[in-house]
């Protein structure tokens, strides 16, 4: 990794320690969204925040080597499609849009409440990756503006 991009060494080390906890807690909030408080939206924003922390600490190039902006927007579309498919399959199986076509299971079990966990995962992919891609777009725009300003003055 390049030492000159991003923030200081202290921030980078703390990011290395924190990033795993952030991702695991985001996944926990999503997967247990139908048992404890949480759900797809806060979990997705938390995962997006983990990637934004990486972007702020290590610079844009390191994060884009893991998930580029184009890949993030593709995952975003796939999440929206997954959420839409849950509704369409329910329409064909049960006759109603977003019919809960999977078994209800036992309460307090992770595989309970039917399609809710699939919908949560779809919303997570959608929200998390779209917010991360928007942050990347904002960061790119800022860099383009700051790099081009002195050139325009030179002309």
């Amino acid at each position: 990794m390049d030492k000159h991009t991003g923030m200081t060494l202290i921030v980078k080390m703390i990011t290395q320690v924190m990033i795993g906890f952030l991702l695991v807690f985001g996944a926990y909030i999503v997967l247990y969204g139908h048992i404890t408080p949480g759900g797809g939206f806060p979990g997705g924003v938390m995962i997006a925040l983990a990637y934004i922390l990486l972007t702020l600490a290590y610079g844009r190039k390191v994060v884009e080597s893991k998930i580029s902006g184009v890949a993030a927007s593709i995952v975003d579309d796939l999440g929206a499609l997954l959420f839409w498919l849950v509704g369409i399959i329910g329409l064909y199986i049960g006759g109603r849009y977003f019919y809960n076509f999977l078994g209800k299971g036992e309460p307090f079990n992770i595989f309970s409440a039917g399609t809710i966990i699939i919908s949560n995962i779809g919303i997570t992919l959608k929200v998390g990756m779209s917010l991360y891609a928007i942050f990347l777009a904002l960061a790119i725009l800022q860099r383009v503006v700051t790099e081009e300003e002195p050139k325009e003055e030179g002309e």
Partner: peptide, 13 residues
């Protein structure tokens, strides 16, 4: 629904 979190069962079912 079978979900113990009623907020999620309302918004997703």
């Amino acid at each position: 629904v079978g979900a113990t979190n009623f907020v999620t069962s309302v918004i997703l079912d």
